[in-house]
Structure formats: structure tokens, C-alpha cells
């Protein structure tokens, strides 16, 4: 039972974001594996531990994205592929096309992704990838069981949960709560260093760069929000007075009473 985990490399969620032109200024930023991709990876490693097979981690990104692959290998992935390119210049469908082409060369029964890449917060690639490959998809998954030729997944929807069954191969996108990701062990870190990362270009995959970077969605500007200075502040040591003040605000300004 083999799987491929698509991981994106994103600025640490604690980062202070600065803008440079139409992109973020990357100087001094720390990059991490996107948090949802960690749940995806952990689920794939558990599947391998239970049923054998390979876990291939796949990323489309610049050179620094290899760091994310190394981290994933250290946690228990067995193979890694890096497709070189600049996802920030592609749109989600371009990224999905790259991943689909790479995946066609890799052994897989289940494809794991995060429900969204933290930062750009698109939440688009998983269903696009599923469509390009013609596979069924289950998104925002909080619980997963993989059986013979099929999987059962819990999908989070507004205030409820669906239990869905899909034949393999299938695409699963991970939500928080799916599992508790492990840390890399020292042994894992050492072993990871020995794995060769299969590095490809977009052209190697038989794709046309102009279709990947064709800008169906183009960023025209990136701006920081106006600094919120904070509103009115009141002392709550008299609960009765504070409560009246809040009710007044809710009624007169929020018009919610």
C-alpha cells in the first residue's frame, strides 16, 4: 500500500509578513512544512507502518523546498521527489498539473495533501489534482481507515461530519484532528541524509512551462491591512457597569439586539 504526500513549504505562521512588490519579502523568513501537510504525512507514515509500501513525499518549489523533503524523510517518508519551479508564479491549477504529472511516475494507492497550504490559504490543489487524475476525492478529513481497495473517511462539514467510502486510488486532504504528527528521531534524521532526492524540471515531466505559469489567476497587488489601533477600552472592575456598556455597544453599534 503506497502513498504520495504532497507537501508545500510555507513561511512560519508566526512570521511577520512584509511585502515586496506583488510578493512577500522572503528575506529572513523561516520556512516550514505547511501544518496540514504534517497531518497528511503522519497519516501516510502510519499507513506504511500498518501495511507496508512506500511513502513518497513530493514538492514543487524552489531549492529551499528540499529542506521540507528532508524533514519529511526524517519523520519516516521513504522516497522524495522535488520538481523545481516557483509555485508563487503559477496558479493552483498550474501547481496541480505539475503534481499530477509527477504522480503519474510514482507508485501510489492513496494521495495525501493538506486541506490548504497555510499562508496563501487557497484550499484548491487537492480537488484539482483529483480531477486531473480522474480519482475520487475526500476533503477536510478528520478520520481515515484504509482497507482492501477502498478507504473510509470522515469529512468535516458545517457543524457535522460525513462518513464517505471511496475506491482506491483516491485523494485525501487532511484536516487538523486526523492524527498527532510525530517528531523526527535522531535515527530518522541520519537515515534521511542518505536518501537521494529525485529532482526534476517541469520539462522533464513532459509539461509545457507556459501552461503551468499561464496566469489564469494573477496577483496584481499585495497589501498589508491598515493597522488597527484597537478600539475603546473600559475598566471591568464594576461588572454591572461593564455589562451595561457592552449591551449598549451591541445594541447601538453592532445592531445585534
Amino acid at each position: 500500500m503506497s502513498s504520495v504526500v504532497c507537501i508545500s513549504h510555507v513561511p512560519d505562521t508566526e512570521s511577520r509578513i512584509r511585502v515586496s512588490g506583488r510578493k512577500i519579502d522572503e528575506t529572513g523568513l523561516k520556512f516550514i512544512v505547511s501544518p496540514y501537510d504534517e497531518y497528511a504525512l503522519e497519516e501516510a507514515i502510519r499507513l506504511k507502518e500498518a501495511k507496508g509500501g512506500d511513502v513518497t513525499v513530493l514538492t514543487f518549489g524552489p531549492d529551499r523546498a528540499q529542506q521540507g523533503l528532508r524533514e519529511a524523510l526524517a519523520r519516516g517518508a521513504t522516497k522524495a521527489m522535488h520538481v523545481k519551479g516557483e509555485p508563487a508564479d503559477a496558479d493552483s491549477l498550474g501547481i496541480a498539473k505539475v503534481l499530477a504529472a509527477a504522480i503519474r511516475t510514482l507508485e501510489h494507492d492513496v494521495l495525501f495533501l493538506g486541506k490548504q497550504g497555510v499562508g496563501t490559504d487557497n484550499a484548491l490543489v487537492a480537488p484539482m489534482l483529483a480531477e486531473l487524475l480522474g480519482y475520487p476525492q475526500v476533503n477536510v478529513v478528520t478520520h481515515l481507515e484504509v482497507g482492501d481497495g477502498k478507504l473510509t473517511a470522515h469529512r468535516e462539514i458545517e457543524g457535522a461530519e460525513e462518513v464517505l467510502e471511496a475506491p482506491l486510488p483516491a485523494v485525501v486532504s487532511a484536516q487538523k484532528g486526523l492524527n498527532e504528527p510525530r517528531y523526527a528521531s535522531l535515527k530518522g534524521i541520519m537515515a534521511a541524509k542518505k536518501v537521494a532526492i529525485d529532482t526534476r524540471s517541469i520539462a522533464d515531466l513532459g509539461l509545457d512551462e507556459s501552461d503551468i505559469y499561464n496566469q489564469r489567476v494573477t496577483v496584481v497587488s499585495l497589501e498589508l491591512p491598515a493597522e488597527k489601533s484597537g478600539g475603546r477600552r473600559i475598566d471591568g472592575s464594576d461588572p454591572q457597569a461593564a455589562a451595561r456598556e457592552i449591551v449598549k455597544y451591541i445594541r447601538d453599534e453592532a445592531k445585534a439586539l
Partner: peptide
């Protein structure tokens, strides 16, 4: 408080029941 339009510095256990 930096994003709040109305901020109350106080004990929630005292304020919430009255509110």
C-alpha cells in the same frame, strides 16, 4: 485588545453572568 472595538479589562467570571 488590539483588534477589539470594545475591550473590557476584567474578570470574565464576574462579567459574563451579569452580561
Amino acid at each position: 485588545f488590539r483588534v477589539a472595538d470594545l475591550g473590557i479589562v476584567g474578570d470574565l467570571f464576574q462579567i459574563l453572568p451579569v452580561l
